[in-house]
Amino acid sequence: MTIEKLTSNFELLGDWEERYGYLIDLGKKLPGLPDADKVEENRVHGCQAMVWLRMSRDTQNPALIRIRADSDAFIVRGLISVLMILFDGKTADEITAADVKSVFSRLGLDQHLSPTRKNGLFAMTERIRTLARGLAIEQNVANN
């Protein structure tokens, strides 16, 4: 799914119930992480639910970054799905350049992006960006 497709799906949905219902469905379909990856070093803090995040370079094309994440709360899983559409399989530069805020505000979910909300979205976004910068630096070092 592309972010354009997701946005137009969201626009077709009327009230918040339908939108949350859709978000929860996305959350239920999220592949998530195996239990072995649900460990402290993958934990993202700043959320009232449990959130785990793993990032790695794509095995075929090391310029691309793969993201896998999971949570015990469905809304958080739904928000993770949106982040995956935005970030998974992208380059570090694309990740750093993405305008997350405007995407979430088009989806009517921007209230979740505030650092004071306890849903982990802000913390996850920051973590993805930081890790992406780290992976990009390693990549540059390897190429030079």
């Binding site: 639910a49 809304i75 958080v76």
Partner: peptide, 11 residues
């Protein structure tokens, strides 16, 4: 999850 419920109740 309690967080899901509270988030939606707030709506």
């Amino acid at each position: 999850h309690a967080l899901d419920v509270a988030t939606m109740a707030d709506q």
